[in-house]
């Protein structure tokens, strides 16, 4: 599904080279549930951005769904993001002037899917995420939990293969955070590969597979027994 071979990423800060990722090797199967943990600055977000094709590796190879996506052009990368990758952010990143339904519809609109199909798919998702009464509300009229549910609906509306979540519970209170987490975990049952970046050990521990990072390198990669 996902395979990183000797991937590294260096940033140039001033005239200094800073290694954010060093020689990362990892494989991730379909429907796997992975958490990436580590202190801030350990490179976990960089790894997530790289997996999401928002960033490019300085060296190494990235295989996604059997295809090499390391050297795709910007347009091709965007296409892969549109079709195969969903993002959930800590700060939700909903478009403030659009309603919940319109926010969910956005990826389909960008992909050029006909309006009727979009409406149908959005209606399904809104119902299944329990947002029916909130569909026509704008983000500022929604609670944090509702906002993140809208964001998850948006991330899954294109039926991606991979869902990348960067601190998805970071801006939520504990109870709501757990609800959102459960929602994400249910997605893996449908075969979506879920990657969660967090610095919260308790949340990270729920994942079946946990990667710990430090200074841009993977220091541990453990699978938890079911």
């Amino acid at each position: 599904m996902i395979e990183l071979q000797n991937v590294s990423r260096t940033f140039t800060v001033g005239d200094q080279q800073v290694a954010a990722l060093r020689d990362i090797n990892m494989q991730l199967g379909e429907g796997e549930y992975l958490s990436i943990m580590g202190p801030s600055g350990s490179g976990k977000s960089t790894l997530l951005n790289l997996l999401g094709l928002l960033d490019r590796a300085s060296a190494g190879t990235y295989l996604l769904d059997g295809g090499n996506v390391t050297d795709l052009s910007d347009v091709q990368q965007a296409h892969v993001r549109s079709q195969k990758i969903g993002f959930v952010f800590q700060s939700f990143h909903l478009v403030p002037r659009l309603t919940a339904a319109q926010n969910i519809e956005l990826p389909m609109m960008l992909a050029g899917i006909p309006a009727e199909e979009r409406k149908q798919r959005v209606a399904e998702l809104i119902a299944s995420y329990g947002l029916s009464e909130r569909a026509d509300h704008r983000p500022d009229q929604l609670s944090g939990g509702q906002r993140q549910r809208v964001a998850i609906a948006r991330a899954t509306v294109m039926s991606p293969a991979v869902l990348l979540a960067d601190e998805p519970t970071g801006n939520l209170d504990r109870t709501t955070g757990w609800e959102v987490l459960k929602l994400l975990e249910q997605l893996t049952e449908r075969g979506i590969t879920l990657v969660i970046v967090t610095h919260d050990a308790e949340i990270g521990a729920r994942a079946l597979r946990q990667i710990h990072m430090l200074d841009g390198a993977i220091i541990s990669d453990e699978k938890r027994a079911l």
Binding site: A78, V80, F87, A111
Partner: peptide
């Protein structure tokens, strides 16, 4: 800027 970043993350190429 954030909205543009989001659109890119959602699969909008620069041209769009």
């Amino acid at each position: 800027v954030k909205e543009i970043g989001l659109l890119k993350a959602l699969g909008a190429p620069g041209r769009q």
